[in-house]
Amino acid sequence: MGWLIMIPTLVLFTFFVWEPLIESIRLSLHSARGVEIQEFVGLQNYIDVFNDVSFNAAFANTFKYIGWSLVIGFVVPIILAIFISETIRGKSFFRFAVYFPNMVPGMAVSLLWVYFFKPGPTGVLNILLGKCGIAPSVWLNNAALTIPLIVIALTWKGAGSTALIYMAGISGINPEYYEAAAIDGAGIWRRIFHITVPCILNLGRTMLILQVISVFQILYEPLVLTNGGPNNASLSIMLLVYKYAFTKYDYPKAAALSVIICVVLILLSGLYMKLTKSKDE
């Protein structure tokens, strides 16, 4: 009965995940005219990808995205979840408010932030800063600020859904812990640091690896906001796959880079699982 229930999911998973993955591996080992496979070339496409200067920039930038997302995007949902859980009135409103950006399509969110960070006096951020007497700036053309600004836009969209998951975890904490803390005279900050945070730690570990996998595949935001610029400063590895496939029409290289991404994510996930398992033991 268990297998009968799982069969539809397994069929869909095989068709939409494993079959494209196997086909990508096959394509990456051949030359092609468009998507029509021509001749076997072995690892030549992988060698060409590794020798491409754009690959080095995209690979380094992707880990910068991950780093900034851990500094900004990982902490913000936890803070939102804790403060909304500690709120006495208006919890439903705040839950909807933080989740609302997640309902907006990714492309629309990117276009929204394009106007927010628009250079010159017509950009929303520059208009707001102009009210405070601060001169306008070319935000997304600053190589040092591009990735942090994109991560802020990414966090604005996705933090709400992650916060709801943390709120569900917080609601499952035994209320007797808080009652005992209140009897002992613990204030809100002691409750948060000694009860709430330790109880959602395991959930945080799971969300951490999911966030790393998600940010590693970031595409829409750098594509729409900067197109990988300035001078490849915001080029992500998935954006490079997009450019190989739909700008240069070099599908074998795009497939080879996709396989590389898959291998890297498997290695990162395995390393993370090993480290967390050792810590739990």
Rank of each mutant, 00 (worst) to 15 (best):
M1T: 13
G2I: 12
I5M: 04
V11F: 12
T14D: 06
L21K: 03
I22S: 11
L29W: 02
S31L: 06
A32L: 08
V35N: 07
I37P: 00
Q38E: 14
F40Y: 07
V41K: 13
V41D: 07
V41N: 06
L43N: 05
Q44W: 04
Q44H: 09
N45A: 09
N45E: 01
Y46M: 10
I47W: 05
D48R: 13
F50M: 15
F50K: 15
N51Q: 08
N51R: 13
S54K: 14
K64G: 15
Y65S: 07
I66Q: 02
I66T: 05
L70Q: 01
V75L: 08
I88D: 05
I88N: 10
G90E: 02
G90N: 07
K91V: 15
K91A: 12
S92R: 04
R95K: 15
F96M: 10
N102E: 08
N102D: 07
N102M: 09
V104P: 02
V104Y: 10
P105Q: 10
V109R: 01
L112K: 04
W113E: 01
K118P: 00
L125D: 00
L125P: 00
L125E: 00
L125Q: 00
N126L: 10
I127N: 00
L129A: 13
K131V: 04
G133L: 11
P136C: 14
S137K: 14
A143S: 12
I147E: 01
P148A: 14
L149K: 06
I152Y: 06
A153D: 02
L154T: 14
W156T: 06
G160Q: 10
A163E: 05
Y166G: 00
A168C: 11
I170C: 02
I173S: 08
Y177I: 00
Y177F: 08
Y177H: 05
Y177C: 01
Y178C: 10
Y178H: 13
H194N: 12
T196Y: 02
V197H: 09
V197F: 13
C199Y: 03
I200E: 00
N202F: 01
M207S: 02
M207N: 07
M207I: 13
M207T: 03
L208K: 04
I209D: 00
I213L: 12
S214Q: 06
F216E: 01
P222L: 06
L225R: 10
G228K: 06
G229V: 02
N232D: 08
S234W: 02
L235I: 03
I237S: 11
I237R: 12
L239M: 14
L240M: 09
Y242D: 12
K243S: 04
Y244C: 11
Y244W: 05
T247I: 13
K248N: 05
D250G: 13
P252H: 09
K253V: 05
A254D: 01
A254C: 05
A255T: 02
L257M: 15
S258H: 08
C262M: 15
C262D: 09
V263A: 03
V264T: 15
V264I: 15
I266A: 15
L267I: 15
G270Q: 08
G270K: 11
L271F: 11
M273H: 09
K277H: 12
S278A: 14
E281N: 14
